[in-house]
Every structure is written in structure tokens, then in C-alpha cells.
């Protein structure tokens, strides 16, 4: 007979298989991604199928609707740069600057302002001009314009979710930012360089 050697040592249950971790990440992302894709697709299809009118609601005080959108886009790009800058500070990526308490508020509000500035420009663009592909510049603008709103939707829908890995948000944020900057280059920058910088 063996001597009683005490209660058996505690063996923890085996860790869950890695597939489960990927599984739950997919569950977090799949609905926002689908909604984002739906947004992008809807904008693109509307732009393609709607008969562009050449006219949409505009803002007084500018020389032309093209100038209105150009300045709205430029404003959005400026606030987007504030967004990225504040994100870098928030993540501690800027050497020598510690994140002040108001940095996340700055990040959120600069993002909101940038987004809301893009909306009138996009509505006008889609309504008056539509999805165009007669040149590389407008094709990139049309595609990225749709993608920007889809990516922004994804970012907004992911933010309140728990259990999102830390790298997802910066990646989505980077996509949103890159899309907006390229959109600005294919439109506002072209407008300024063709017609000059004026109201």
C-alpha cells in the first residue's frame, strides 16, 4: 500500500485553445466591419447610379461650390492632423511629452469636427458630381471617399466594444486618416493648384 501523500496537487485546467481567442476577436470585428462595408458600398452605388445634377446645396460667401468643398476638406484635414497628433501623445509615442488630462477630449472633439466637416462636402460631391472615373485622380477620390466613411463607421462602432486588442484602434484610425489625406490631395490640393488659393 502506498503512503498517503496528501491531496493531489492542483492542476489548472488547460488554457483555452488559441482558436477561441481568434474566434472572439472576429466576433467583435465582424459586425462593425460589415456595417462599414455596407456604408461604403451604399455611398459608392448611390454615387454611381444617381444622375448627378451639377447642383447641390451650397454655402454662401465662397467663389464657387468647388471652393466650398475645398475649404471644408482642408478644415477636416487640419482637424484630422490634430487627431493623429493627439493619438500619438495619448499612446505615449511623442518623446518628452506626457499626455495631459485633456488630450483624449481633444482627440475626440477634433475627430468629431473633422468628420462633421466632411459630411457637407461629401453630400455635395455625391449629389452634384457622383462617382466618377474619367481620370485617375477622380477615381481614387471616389473610391477612397466611400472607403473613408466605411472605415470611420468601423472605428466608431469598435470604440465602445470591450476586449478589442490594442492594435486594432490605431490601425483603423490610420486607415481613416490616410484615406482622408489622400482624398484631400485628389480634390482640395488639385483645386488650389489649378485655380489658386482663394475663397
Amino acid at each position: 500500500m502506498t503512503a498517503y501523500s496528501g491531496p493531489p496537487a492542483y492542476t489548472p485546467p488547460p488554457p483555452p485553445p488559441p482558436a477561441a481567442a481568434v474566434d472572439s476577436l472576429a466576433k467583435i470585428l465582424v459586425v462593425p466591419s460589415l456595417i462599414g462595408c455596407l456604408v461604403a458600398l451604399t455611398l459608392g452605388l448611390y454615387g454611381r447610379l444617381h444622375h448627378a445634377t451639377g447642383i447641390a446645396v451650397s454655402i454662401a460667401g465662397f467663389s464657387s461650390p468647388g471652393a466650398v468643398k475645398t475649404w471644408l476638406a482642408t478644415g477636416a484635414a487640419v482637424f484630422a492632423i490634430v487627431q493623429v497628433g493627439s493619438a500619438l501623445v495619448m499612446y505615449g509615442k511623442v518623446p518628452g511629452i506626457t499626455a495631459p488630462s485633456w488630450i483624449s477630449g481633444l482627440h475626440r472633439w477634433s475627430g468629431r469636427i473633422a468628420f462633421l466637416l466632411t459630411v457637407p462636402a461629401a453630400v455635395h460631391c455625391l449629389y452634384a458630381l457622383g462617382f466618377q472615373d474619367y481620370s485617375t485622380r477622380v477615381l481614387i477620390h471616389s473610391v477612397l471617399g466611400c472607403l473613408f466613411f466605411g472605415a470611420f463607421t468601423v472605428k466608431m462602432l469598435i470604440l465602445p466594444k470591450r476586449g478589442v486588442p490594442g492594435w486594432i484602434l490605431p490601425v483603423v484610425g490610420a486607415i481613416v486618416f490616410a484615406a482622408l489625406i489622400i482624398i484631400w490631395f485628389t480634390s482640395a490640393f488639385w483645386f488650389f493648384s489649378t485655380f489658386g488659393v482663394h475663397r
Binding site: G54, I55, G66, L129, T194
Partner: peptide
């Protein structure tokens, strides 16, 4: 532009 034209509002120059 007439309301039914599908012109592009480019600007002035």
C-alpha cells in the same frame, strides 16, 4: 447650370 445638367462645378478661372 440648369438643374438637369450633369455638369461639374469646377470653379472659376
Amino acid at each position: 447650370p440648369s438643374p438637369t445638367s450633369s455638369g461639374v462645378l469646377l470653379g472659376r478661372g
